[in-house]
């Protein structure tokens, strides 16, 4: 178990700034998720922590020690690459045992650890196969088993579930989380999938274009996004953002409901011109524009199936949002500002 910290970390590839002054701490035993759109620098940050890539500026610390000059093999980190990077010329057994062999663990002890790690991920029966004879899910387990086998102090996982089909992904997510809780190793997990991030992370780090936009617990990031990028990236569909003077007002689709459902006293009401209704079974997504003094910004409402009110496209309905559910953002900077009347 270890604390991982980066300070003022920057990485340039030629003229391209992949990471810009990133500062971050993963606490001991924490499950920290790096979340951001493709190309925002998540993998690069992970590679810098592993030591595969050298920073242009800044420091990486593991347990308070600057490790910039420590090669990857001496950092005691385990990494699972997006591609799983299994050794194609070795069996599953040899793959999992490889880190042990490289650290000169005696053969008998190593064999036991390999069996144990394989058992932990339910791949004990595949030990004599080669990677090309495995399915995507099995490969992922082999990569994870290889990562845990030598008790590293940090796990670095780069989108380990992205190659799995949707159904498998949900169960793998749950397993992964349970497993991390059990062994309590500091884990930095990269994903571009906000559902995965919300479900897995103790804390989430939202990144965009090489810098960190917000760090916080999932609920906090969801409820109080630091800026319009985070507001628009998290949630499906994301937060509605509507121009209002020199500010933007934001509200979650599930808080934007027919006026009959929200308490009159402290609600802000709009006339909602509905253009399109999607019935997804468990809920309805209602698309449209706000009439009245609000601008013509497009907004979405998410109404649970338990609400029986009929809504049709092409008509206007009174909708409202509880005032405490409104978030305000500066239009110029995109940053969230506190309170204020509409």
């Amino acid at each position: 178990m270890a604390r991982v910290e980066v300070r003022g970390l920057s990485k340039r590839f030629g003229g391209f700034q992949a990471l810009d002054e990133v500062g971050l701490t993963a606490r001991e035993g924490e499950f920290l998720v790096l979340l951001g759109p493709s190309g925002c620098g998540k993998t690069t940050l992970l590679r810098l922590i592993a030591g595969i890539e050298e920073p242009s500026r800044g420091e990486v610390l593991i347990d308070g020690r600057v490790v910039n000059d420590v090669p990857p093999r001496l950092r005691n980190v385990a990494m699972v690459f997006q591609s799983y990077a299994l050794y194609p010329h070795m069996t599953v057994r040899e793959n999992i045992g490889f880190p042990l062999k490289m650290h000169h663990i005696p053969k008998a002890a190593a064999a036991g650890k390999v069996e144990e790690a394989a058992g932990m991920f339910g791949i004990g029966g595949l030990l004599d196969r080669r990677p090309r004879e495995l399915s995507g899910g099995e490969r992922q387990r082999v990569a994870l088993a290889r990562a845990v086998v030598r008790n590293p102090s940090v796990f670095l996982l780069d989108e380990p579930l992205s190659n799995l089909d949707a159904k498998l992904r949900v169960s793998a997510r749950e397993e992964l989380r349970r497993f991390q809780r059990r062994i309590g190793v500091t884990t930095i997990y990269v994903t571009h999938d906000q559902v995965e991030a919300m479900g897995l992370g103790d804390r989430i780090v939202v990144m965009n274009r090489g810098s960190i936009r917000q760090v916080g617990e999932p609920r906090e990031i969801y409820e109080r996004p630091a800026d319009t990028f985070v507001a628009g990236f998290i949630g499906s569909p994301p937060m509605n953002l509507v121009e209002q003077g020199d500010r933007l007002v934001g509200f979650r689709p599930e808080r934007f409901l027919p006026a009959a459902l929200t308490p009159k006293a402290d609600a802000v009401a709009w006339s909602f011109d509905v253009t399109w209704v999607e019935d997804l079974g468990a809920e309805r997504l209602v698309y449209g524009t706000l009439g009245g003094k609000a601008s013509e910004g497009r907004v979405v409402s998410r109404i649970p199936a338990s609400v029986p009110i009929a809504i049709e496209a092409g008509r206007a309905y009174p909708f409202s949002v509880d005032r405490v559910d409104l978030r305000w953002f500066d239009r110029a900077t995109g940053l969230r500002t506190e309170g204020g009347a509409p």
Binding site: A78, Q82, A85, L86, M102
Partner: peptide
């Protein structure tokens, strides 16, 4: 793939 080599470096080489 470069990954395989980098994996080996993380794994102790």
């Amino acid at each position: 793939p470069r990954d395989i080599e980098e994996q080996a470096m993380v794994d102790g080489l």
